[in-house]
Design a protein around this nucleic acid. Structure first.
Lengths: 193, 193
DNA sequence: CTGATTCAGGAACGATTGTTCCGTATTTTT
DNA sequence: AAAAATACGGAACAATCGTTCCTGAATCAG
């Protein structure tokens, strides 16, 4: 019927994730989006509706990407405890090498928007529930295999792990570059495991 | 020389803390400040300079208030471990009863601004260092008194505690109202202690 | 090729942003 | 009492905000 889109919608979304992740929702202007996504205002609004809708779509995409990675890592791991340490080590590496410290897009959005935007609040809560379930399932398996201490309930441990993951991402967002600080935290976390 | 101020500057700052804490920096408009502080635009700008200066002053005041509470609680405590559990229990109580979930003003500001405003970044870093020192000193004392396990170094534990404190405040900010979630996390934290 | 359709670019919108300025009221010092 | 100084309230500022709309180019079906 008509001409085809000159841009890939998913690629544009990934660009949107980048800029929202870096600058936050309120800190990102429509002009920032135009510049960073490399498409015109009209295309942007025609395709995604408005800024809030674009943000929601970006956050959901980010969420899915992260869940897939977590599931992949934990389900195929021969040793669950090792897999968890790898997940954290990876987060530390990212935190240290990130020239522009972005932290975690989900954590950032929780803090900035969850209490002011019900739709974001729902995403954040879904995320907590889902990650908690992924962790919990893996920990249970690890406990059955004798790889993880079963002194603590699996769900309790899962929530604890999630909490420390949030904390580390906040630390990264503050620009902490001292590896020793992260390692100290990890040492304590896995002493319990 | 001239007429006296009709408002108390510290009281105004406390009001500023409230609104910035609730809405964040970018989310709070000049009009919000006028409404909430209850003083005119001119008085506001004459007294505090501009929005950023007011924010910095608010955050510094909040920081000092919190440090004072921590020091007070930890230095006079007969049992250090008990004191830490009380600090966390208090944070949980605040998180649960806060009708408008504000989280922690320092954590919120870290996430929103630390990487975009060097002055805020400095405050956030000072805060980390100071709280870490307060915690570390208390833990060392607790270890000497045999109240806290000395399997882990004091500073390492301090960083771990700080990390979990951040995490819990993020959780509060998301609006989590299930006490069990917080209790699960606390149970794991103090299993290590 | 023609006509229908949808694209991209950018001008333009009203609303809101943070900030400044001015006139008036009020208080203290001389 | 007069004068100097400052707080106050609100109008007004330019800039930027998110969003809409208009124009012309591009691409498809017939």
């Amino acid at each position: 019927m008509a001409r085809t889109k000159e841009f890939n919608e998913d690629q544009a979304l990934d660009k949107a994730i980048e800029i929202f992740w870096h600058k936050g929702y309120n800190g990102t202007s429509a002009q920032d989006l135009v510049n960073h996504l490399g498409l015109s205002r009209s295309s942007l609004y025609d395709t995604f509706g408005d800024k809030q809708k674009l943000f929601v779509k970006s956050l959901k995409r980010y969420q899915k990407q992260n869940h897939d990675v977590l599931i992949e890592l934990l389900e195929n791991a021969p040793n669950i405890k090792t897999a968890f340490t790898e997940i954290f080590k990876q987060a530390v590496i990212e935190s240290l090498q990130d020239r522009i410290t972005k932290g975690c897009f989900m954590v950032n959005s929780s803090v900035e928007l969850a209490m002011h935007d019900p739709e974001i609040a729902k995403i954040v809560h879904d995320n907590q529930k889902t990650v908690e379930d992924i962790f919990s399932k893996a920990i249970k398996k690890g406990q059955d295999l004798g790889q993880i201490s079963d002194k603590q309930e699996a769900r309790s441990l899962a929530r604890f792990i999630f909490n420390n993951y949030s904390g580390i991402r906040v630390l990264a967002r503050t620009g902490e570059r001292d590896k020793q600080v992260y390692d100290d935290i990890l040492k304590s976390i896995f002493a319990l495991f």
